[in-house]
Design a binder for these strands. Structure first.
Lengths: 345, 345
DNA sequence: AATGGTTCCGGTAACGATACCGGCAACGCT
DNA sequence: AGCGTTGCCGGTATCGTTACCGGAACCATT
């Protein structure tokens, strides 16, 4: 590795002191214009780049943000794109680490970044995580920390998420309006806020229409296609099988769809299906799957903005929680009453 | 931000010198066992974490790898996972930057990381990139650099990619064997190696079966669904329309599929379709789309291994190019001759 | 001629860590 | 007694940068 030019080299060549070069570089007022020009010219020639490490060490900030995500699926990578957008603008570089939904990995990643590599964190917790000590360490160091998407009450930090309850409500109400009577829900892991909130929305909708919730129709299963597939098979083998399923992610909706097709049932006639996330795939399968769309890119941007506010304000922002609105997108999988005179929006 | 404990604090409290603490910390041989224990105990108590910045500054390496990717779609994020796996094992932390297929963004990201944030790069170039000066800067600094997936001859660096030509060949030969006569190809942007290589494979297969390539059936279009959709519409409106399409990515295959369905054509009877990447989505649509699978995770791992070799060997590895084999996965979209007595594997 | 205000610049400490050199005991050996 | 060896430790320079203090040179004012 070739040695890059430093401020010292410039000083030596111009026969001036290091401090003067440093000042000239930062365009400080108390430097002679000629000197400034000479410094600039030479630094250009030597292709001088200030050493970020030395800078960070000196002023105790790195201008890096650590972003910890459980994976990089469609939704999260869109959110990360949003974070990136705003962060770059504000002069931050983001370091993305995926924990692969693994608790251990999450800890390792956090610890690594914590070692003076970043100024703070933007976090979406892994589905496996039930203990938050590694994140609390961040707070002990009084580093800025923002949570997004998967927000948890166990972490007192500013956050941004979508209105999951509303999303769950929209999905469920829509199914009810379509005349479905026995609506099952594939909720995610119990320890995840987004699971419970979407479940709450489901329950709220049932309540509004005076439908008594049936315990057997509420399934907590892992956040993936395979589990959803199996869970759906079990649902469909029940004596009184459900006539609609709401899954709290599209991955799970796909799993459910496969089980439904295998069973020879038709959507939406025999059974209705609504997913969550509105990933591109749901519009490509047949029938298209209704899904609750969330403003992922926007959410990422808000997360980064919150982070930057936290840095600047430095006041306690832990009470701040921004909530964005999701919106149900209706497709064939759940539409059995053709809309007339605008009853279905 | 609370001030973390440093080596100095420990030295002061124990009334010994900084150097001794430093040695004790690194478990050097010439430190008294008692002293060592005392240091360890106190560092535990103070929750001492060595400052990575200071370390990096001193020994001129960061143990970070900059990973530059055009996006984080299914394939690339799988590859990144592979990189992560190996890098973590070897004590490196990866910094992922997505360029969003934008040339300018790629430059900004590279420059940022270049400022002493990383020890080297693992790169997949953006589809927009036609000039490689920003990457050459990396080489001028004699930093390790590995290219992966999207390898380009303009960059003399060790790399790993799949055998794109073979992939293109497999796809095309399969279509020919299925009796398709006019096979079109949606190739990607002309400046991208993977486009041309897959195109070469296509041409090679045609040649093997003595089919004269038709210029009108070779379309260079951008790497996305929308362009592929439009290009396919045009193809299908030709007087002598093709009876099969090979797209060099699944995104494009989806675009093509939409155009085909809209036109009312049936797959595989009226028209055959083969994509590339074997993303999960292709098995979910109806009909399932045949696609060339690539070992993405493995490829990421190899990229990281190459990087680490480059660091250690320090010899010129620019001639090294690992090539992994892709494998066509056949689905309904291209299968109109039912396999019998094993003719189709 | 002494004073004061600018303008410009240099020296030095500091950030947190390591590497190198050298020094002081204690010990064993001739 | 004198010597070298060994075990253990401290001092200091260094990485590249900035912050702070102080000082020289110059001009203008009283």
């Amino acid at each position: 590795m070739i040695k890059p030019a430093t401020i010292k080299d410039i000083a030596r060549k111009l026969n001036i002191s290091i401090s003067t070069v440093s000042r000239a570089m930062r365009n400080a007022p108390d430097v002679n214009a000629d000197t400034k020009r000479a410094v600039m010219a030479l630094s250009e020639e030597l292709n001088y780049q200030p050493n970020k490490l030395a800078l960070s060490l000196k002023q105790k900030q790195t201008h890096n943000i650590g972003v910890i995500v459980p994976n990089l699926d469609y939704v999260l990578s869109t959110m990360v794109k949003g974070i990136d957008e705003v962060a770059l603008e504000a002069g931050y570089t983001v370091m993305v680490c995926q924990s692969n939904e693994s608790f251990g990995r999450e800890i390792v990643n956090t610890r690594r970044l914590l070692d003076s590599l970043v100024d703070g964190f933007i976090i979406s917790v892994s589905s496996e995580t039930k203990v938050f000590d590694h994140f609390k360490k961040i707070q002990e160091k009084q580093m800025p920390m923002v949570v997004f998407d998967r927000v948890t009450p166990y972490l007192k930090a500013p956050g941004v998420r979508i209105d999951n309850e509303d999303g769950g409500f929209q999905a469920t109400e829509h199914l009810i309006e379509q005349g479905y009577k026995r609506i099952a829900i594939l909720a995610g892991p119990k320890n995840l806020g987004i699971s419970n909130q979407r479940l709450d929305g489901y329950l709220k909708a049932l309540k509004k229409y005076r439908i008594k919730p049936d315990e057997d129709l509420i399934i907590n299963c892992d956040f993936n296609q395979q589990y959803a597939y199996i869970a759906t098979q079990e649902l469909l083998n029940m004596k009184k099988r459900p006539d609609a399923i709401f899954t709290i992610s599209d991955r799970m909706a796909i799993g459910a769809m496969l089980a439904i097709k295998e069973k020879g049932l038709r959507m939406p006639q025999d059974i209705g299906l609504v997913g969550f996330n509105n990933e591109p795939v749901v519009s490509l399968v047949t029938p298209g799957i209704s899904s609750v769309d969330q403003p992922a890119f926007e959410l990422g941007k808000v997360a980064a903005k919150l982070f930057i506010e936290t840095v600047h304000n430095n006041g306690d922002m832990s009470e701040v929680e921004e909530i964005l609105k999701p919106k149900l997108i209706i497709r064939e999988s759940s539409l059995r009453i053709q809309p007339k005179n605008g009853r279905i929006k």
